[in-house]
Design a protein around this nucleic acid. Structure first.
Lengths: 158, 158
DNA sequence: TCATTTTGCTTAGCCTGTTGAAATATCTTC
DNA sequence: GAAGATATTTCAACAGGCTAAGCAAAATGA
């Protein structure tokens, strides 16, 4: 087995771990990974418009509407008409939504961040360099204005 | 922005490239990424049982039944009752299915493999080491006998 | 000013993937 | 051969995704 195979296998493990994380999250947080991702994005600043979220996640507005519908039904977020531009809807997170995502298990990220930060400086540097190299190899010529979608998002650090 | 963030962002790019690849594949090969993954598994040996495929992909038998239904409708695979154990169904790939996956575009892997193999020895070694390190960080204590699922599977090399 | 275009969002209808529960058919075993 | 285990399928229900169409509110421009 050559290095190419080994590297592909490692990539596969990374993808799979992410997928499994998404499923676990779905069960433990009482919502699906996609819904959780929407919550995370809204929680970053406390509010966001459907279009903005849709763009970041790489889905259409229509899809976002139905996702928000479900989160509203769960009392996790609220819709509020914008004052400035009354075409816009502002989706804000509710107190319940906030505690839910704060308390949500985030095993993948926690695990990764903790271990990453425990590494020595040179090793961190090496990993960052390698990951960026791989990312560049994979998403090259795909840099268009397309959205920042990611499956079960590994999330923002810290 | 510290190194942890940078590394998470790179990971996110990797995941996203994989996701986008799955979507492109779906359009160009005339089937979805999930269906394609089923085809790949069957093609490994030319045949497989629904349960075996379901296990490898981490879905239930019921799901596999409906996936196979669709592939049968597309004339990509066939169901054949096993002779030995007539409870079992053997899913075999058709000639059409075989040519379809042989000719399927595999831009992600091609791109990756080509670039990887063009790298210098020391760089390949560095990337393999880094990817394995990251994979270990992510899928630690998750090594159980669970299935070999991966989204839009990066695929087997060569 | 006001008609036209653009923008932001929702509705409606349709697909795929997924599951759990129940039904069917076929071994296996005592 | 009856009871239990195993392999699949069927069915009903949902989540997520899309497109097309519609509506309401800005923005534009003649």
């Amino acid at each position: 087995m050559d290095r190419t195979d080994v590297s592909l296998i490692a990539l596969r493990r990374i993808l799979r771990a992410t997928e499994l994380y998404g499923r676990r999250l779905a069960k433990e947080a009482g919502m699906t990974a996609v819904q959780f991702r929407v919550m995370q994005i809204i929680a970053e600043t406390g509010h966001a418009t459907p279009t903005a979220i849709a763009n970041r996640m790489g889905v259409t507005q229509a899809t976002m509407t139905s996702l928000i519908d479900k989160l509203v039904a769960k009392d996790m977020v609220e819709r509020k008409r914008s004052e400035k531009d009354r075409r816009q809807t502002n989706v804000t997170i509710t107190p319940l939504g906030l505690t839910t995502i704060d308390e949500a298990p985030d095993p993948l990220q926690q695990r990764y961040v903790k271990k990453f930060e425990a590494m020595q400086d040179w090793e961190q540097a090496m990993i960052v360099a390698a990951l960026e190299r791989v990312a560049a190899m994979l998403d090259a010529d795909e840099i268009d204005a397309s959205p920042v979608l990611d499956i079960g998002d590994i999330g923002k650090a810290h």
